[in-house]
Amino acid sequence: MSQSPTMRSIGHENDVVFDNIGMTFDTGAGVTRAVENVSGAIPEGKFVSVIGPSGCGKSTLLDMVGGLLKPTQGSVSINGEKVTGPRRDTAMVFQEDSTLHWRTVLDNVAFGLEVKGISKAERYDSARRMIELVGLKGFEDHRPGQLSGGMKQRVAIARALAMEPRVLLMDEPFGALDQQTRQFIGRELLRIWEKTRNRVLFITHDIQEAVYLSDEVWVMSARPSIVKEVVTIDLPRPRPEGTHALPRFRELEDHLWALVKVEAEKTLGPGARLA
């Protein structure tokens, strides 16, 4: 059920391809090797999650794919083109609240399209559809200040989806939410994704969430991080509510737990829990 990432056949043209990518931060305070020698690919239409101990370089990896950070080693390419900066066909959702507090929900969701220069009528049209899709219908004219954390994250997700990205990058988008809300939004996300089937790179520290959502889960090691193992999630799709109770689900979850535990102990010492 798992392969070493370097053994995989890498790089179909339509994939997101990591070619021996690495990132070293050189600040005045010292040098941090955040990511090292990551190779792999997100195949067309696949949902890939990344898990690993806190501080191992997951966000760094995602930012490199999003073109926000330039790797100090190797490169990422999307559709055969090397990523040199933010691309119009990728969209990102961040862990922190990234809503624009002076804009209404509608104008927040339309923001990405507005920047792309899409006409008002057209972008509002898409924005309204996305707002409905993420379950915020009726809140179009509200401002983020009037919304809960979960709703704000749904605004951010709707904004990313409205851009109809071919690659969707999400950095612990449900990290700040309570367990019930994150399970609910996770199901919603999957329901929406079944329709779009774009490539998703999803970062989480929640193993259940990773198993439930993904086609593949990449387990990152403690710093300097490599992708230690790629676990293929061979659960059938669509995945209804009872999926969590399947014996196969439990098996995959246990396997990932075991992998992650080793890494967490490396960073935090034995007996530590996954952060």
Partner: peptide, 15 residues
Amino acid sequence: IKPILHKLANSVSAS
């Protein structure tokens, strides 16, 4: 201004 807003503007390729 929160750094996340710079990140957001950057990620949507704002001019």
